[in-house]
Design a protein around this nucleic acid. Sequence first.
DNA 1: GTCTATATCATGATAGAC
DNA 2: GTCTATCATGATATAGAC
Lengths: 226, 226
Amino acid sequence: MPENRRNATRERILDTAETLFMAQGYEGTSMRQITGQAQVNLAAVNYHFGSKEELLQEVFRRRLKWLNDERLRVLDALEAEAGGHALKPSQIVDAFFGTLLRMAGDRKHGGPVFLRLLGRTLTEPSEFIRTFLADEYREVMERFKSALFKALPDVPRVEIVWRFHFMLGATSYAIAGTDTLRLVTDWHLDAAEADGGPERLLPRLMTFLLGGLRAPLPAGTGPGLP
Amino acid sequence: MPENRRNATRERILDTAETLFMAQGYEGTSMRQITGQAQVNLAAVNYHFGSKEELLQEVFRRRLKWLNDERLRVLDALEAEAGGHALKPSQIVDAFFGTLLRMAGDRKHGGPVFLRLLGRTLTEPSEFIRTFLADEYREVMERFKSALFKALPDVPRVEIVWRFHFMLGATSYAIAGTDTLRLVTDWHLDAAEADGGPERLLPRLMTFLLGGLRAPLPAGTGPGLP
DNA sequence: GTCTATATCATGATAGAC
DNA sequence: GTCTATCATGATATAGAC
């Protein structure tokens, strides 16, 4: 069973790398750590993926493919149901960010480990990571921006794009994990409240995001782009 | 002038390290890069700071000291002016996040370089960084949370803390730089619009943050903690 | 296909001359 | 205080045996 063993080794490397990159970052994780913990040979990474950079890309690709396909599937279903009418902003935001957060409960697709990795990687400085992520996200971004433009025809497009950006930031930070949350909590929240899992986080985040997305325009903001 | 030279070397190392950590991250930056670009000897970092970790901490300390003192100074002034009355949420949010963003125009205190570094570091996985930042932020966090609790007496404290967390995330991501912004833009915004500098960013961000902070409570949210 | 062994180089840190 | 020289370690990647 060479095919099975090949896949088993590949998947074990990917799973281990995902966990280590999440906990220590890309630069902070060595191939010796990955192969040691995955109990495969040091040369296996180069054999299966070519390089450490390509390993990282594959770690993201197998999860993002599923996530973004799912996002598009949900958006397609909503738009089909609406039959040409504009969607509600809350539907669009849930299709994008709700689908992401619900991944946390789905261990088959990475679960909380991948979510934290993704949140932490979005601000990673390495050029090749940002280029790669921008490519992976391009299609889904265009679809969701279009949906928001249609749902909010009176809001200048430039404002919608900025607010999408702010929503991404709030969400990334939230899924980057409870350790960073020590900055804010540490104090009035016990661990049970602070670490309530996705089912507590999602409604709170959605409320915040929609409040920001639908906030009245600030004074002095020009009209939309042509 | 041994004292002057000592300070000049120290400051040059700190400035160079700040820029490189911003562009490449902590793990991705070597002491050889830092000392080479700062045109000081390789041993100078260990002599002046002891280790690479302590260098990073000093890079942050000199900026965060000024930033957080300034935040507290603004908050003190607002509270003195209010004379015992609760502040408006917008005043508190501006004292915290506005003071941060206005640092971007102040090259004497790091300017945009430090802002991007800070935004990128808040999701950094290294344990010692997170512990260090949590310590540096503790006092200012407690003061601002208290001010928000007082300004929003009808909102459960746990909700305020969560929303503070979301605001931090949106802001971190926004100041982490326009490169990451390619994820969202790349498309309908020309560079001039997307990269409008802090004077464009601040009102947009404030509107978003306040919209999220003051959003109506979601259904099913329990009462505040005792 | 998988692994051993190794090539080649960069890293953070330090000892000791000046 | 600053520099040179060097240490010990760990990094990614690969050549070649099996």
